[in-house]
Nucleic acid binder design. Structure first.
Lengths: 237, 237
DNA sequence: CCGCCATGTCATGAAACTGTGACAGGGCAC
DNA sequence: GTGCCCTGTCACAGTTTCATGACATGGCGG
């Protein structure tokens, strides 16, 4: 059963962080540090790319360097605010008071001065996410696939896909065990009731329907893999 | 942009700030500075007094010095978190990384190192309040829909709509979990008592009534969406 | 007491969803 | 290569679920 009304926010679950930083060395270092803290990070070197990413991939939080080529971080933040409640942390080398005020007025949730200890940044990310939790749902991202377990929404490459209740329960069950092979009997019990014949084509049919909706090329699945003779395995590309 | 630090925020309502700081001179200075920014401030020198104040006077935000006689700021923060969602900013002379992490883990929304420019503190207060607004404030706005939890009033496009008690409880319950799918069983428990059959159409009927009152086109709801097989989801347009 | 309003229940039609079975295609063992 | 078995595909009918409007009940104020 899906985590319907309960707040099953799983804090161990990786967060989708969008990092924007033009200095490659800082960028790599931060990406590494955040990954070590258990976050899943996607990074870009410019604001334009980042805005595209937000529209299509719906990260959980954006960390923006202020000094960027092209659109600067503060402006990216303003544009995010115009379309979204996405939490934003601004990151900068300059700790000028005026910069802080301008950044926060632009709608940022926090303003952090570099260099910053990874664990401090992590703590600040958590604080911001904790507060934003009611607007941000708990979702899991696998490449282009986003599964929102609170809103019961699934989207692929930015487009929301409509899954029927059974399809959704099946996908949620698969997603709950990434990398594991789940056999048909198990899936029958977990997604359907126990009143079904074990040799039914039910699971297969449902898997196909889900694939048709979330796989770019259903014939060559990237997410739901068939393990011949055993069952199915959900694993990110 | 005209004046640099000018207190040009004229259309903001004054916030009820609770300040806790044991050093009298710092306390007076901060109180004065915050008042100048248009906030209404109440201050105390100890955590015990502050906790009493919170229970009785319900401030909008608490600013706590970490080093306090008796219960320290971090502990005050923890106790606040145990009872509600009140936004907290910790203030300290020590900018030790570990302190920051501990403070934020205790549930603080921000952690500011003294000395701090009044306008920076003000900007941080505003940022925290902005983010917390959806959780703490009595009035929530979703596009044309305004739900006032304090006055128990709902208005749509400026016109007040009359909801009956049950309808109002239902809407409030939905609004309390924006974006989340709530199933019928949950709603039955939350809005009605548990004496109803789980398969009752009660929730459906009530949802329709609320839709008829708040949705411009009830047949194509903008706010209360049906999630077939699961329940209903309130989400802003 | 009467009437009004809020609330719960029910019937119905429409729409969406699901299970099923037959068949095609392809992998794997031999 | 051959045959077997596993899996993918599809359409359709039966079932489930939901919106809607009508109706019964019951509380409450006038």
């Amino acid at each position: 059963m899906a985590g319907i009304a309960g707040h099953s926010k799983n804090n161990d679950q990786v967060a989708g962080i969008l990092l924007v930083e033009d200095d490659p060395s800082v960028r790599t270092a931060l990406e590494l540090a955040l990954s070590r803290q258990g976050h899943s990070v996607t990074s870009y070197g410019s604001g334009e790319e980042a805005l595209d990413h937000i529209r299509s991939r719906r990260p959980e939080i954006a960390i923006l360097d202020v000094m960027l080529p092209g659109i600067d971080g503060v402006e990216v933040c303003r544009r995010i605010r115009r379309m979204d409640q996405l939490p934003v942390i601004l990151l900068t080398a300059r700790g000028d008071d005026l910069d802080v005020v301008v950044g926060l007025e632009a709608g940022a949730d926090d303003y952090v001065v570099k260099p910053v200890e990874p664990r401090v940044l992590d703590a600040r990310i958590r604080a911001v996410l904790r507060r934003a939790e009611s607007v941000t749902s708990d979702r899991i991202t696998f490449g282009d696939l986003v599964v929102d377990r609170g809103a019961l929404k699934v989207s692929m490459a930015g487009r929301e896909v409509h899954l029927t209740p059974t399809e959704l329960r099946l996908l949620l069950e698969l997603v709950r065990h990434p990398g594991q092979v789940l056999n048909r009997r198990y899936l029958l019990r977990a997604v359907w009731d126990h009143t079904h014949a074990a040799d039914s084509r039910l699971v297969d049919a449902c898997v196909q329907r889900v694939r048709a909706k979330i796989e770019p090329v259903p014939a060559e699945p990237e997410f739901i893999h068939t393990v011949r003779g055993f069952g199915y395995r959900f694993s990110p590309p």
